[in-house]
Amino acid sequence: MRAREPDADGFVDRGPVKLHWERFGDGEPTLLLLPTWTIVHARFWKAQVPYLARHYRVVTYDGPGNGRSDRPLDAEPYGCEEQAQAASAVLDATGTDRAVLVSLSMGALWALWLMANRPQQVLGSVFIGPSVPLGPGYEDREQPFEEPYTSTEGWAKYNRHYWLDHYQDFLEFFFSQCFTERHSTKPVEDSVGWGLETSPEVLIAESYPPWPDEATVCGWCAASRCPVVVIHGDDDQISPVGRGRALAEATGGALVVLEGAGHIPLARHPVKVNLLIREFVESLGGTAR
């Protein structure tokens, strides 16, 4: 059951892969809430959609691999540029000329690609817990992914063989790392449930395309011209807050650090995050109208 049902929905064809989108509300401007890692689908925005749709036109969609979108097992649909092109196609399919992009975690990469390569479609960009290769990440994540696992502890679970053997256990571990705040049992349960709607085979296919390197991302940041705000928890155990800081600097954007917040503050601190998004959209003023 949802607090707010969509006013319209449909599918976009990306070659053989169909992606499902939904639209809520019809205010101005349009906000495109991007997908992130396909381990979850568009419902991870559940605490944002009802509020934002009271003020703006909100478009969400399921990326390839989860939700009501197809689940291709080849790598191609999961590449960074194809993911960004798919977002652009969703804007076209929903009759959206320009939108404020709102992204979480690795969705930042697709937002940055659009900002650099489709600037006419982007009014502004909100990054939440951006997972971008700017500055150091967490060292204990350098675990062997392709080889058979020799440990089942901690980040050793980030291993394709472990996923195939113990998918739900990996999901529970991963989301326990995402939600470091106390009293997060409900968002952890929600997220594990969304993770179970796809499969380890899909996540493995998604892992194949190379990630853009630091120089590429820096180039996108330099090419970007739109207003930016970066919202980052200082207890983010997935993407360190230093990366959000680096992204704000590289894009000339504002940085809001949420003290005590983890990787997904939009679920654990929804009122704060929603108000920050609204404040940002309002600051765009006439350019957004």
């Binding site: 705040e181 928890g233 200082d234 504002a254 940085l255 809001v256 650090v257 949420l258 003290e259 005590g260 917040a261 503050p265 601190h269 704060k272």
Partner: peptide, 8 residues
């Protein structure tokens, strides 16, 4: 800007 999320 830093916003405090935890109250003592």
């Amino acid at each position: 800007m830093t916003l405090t999320m935890t109250a003592p």
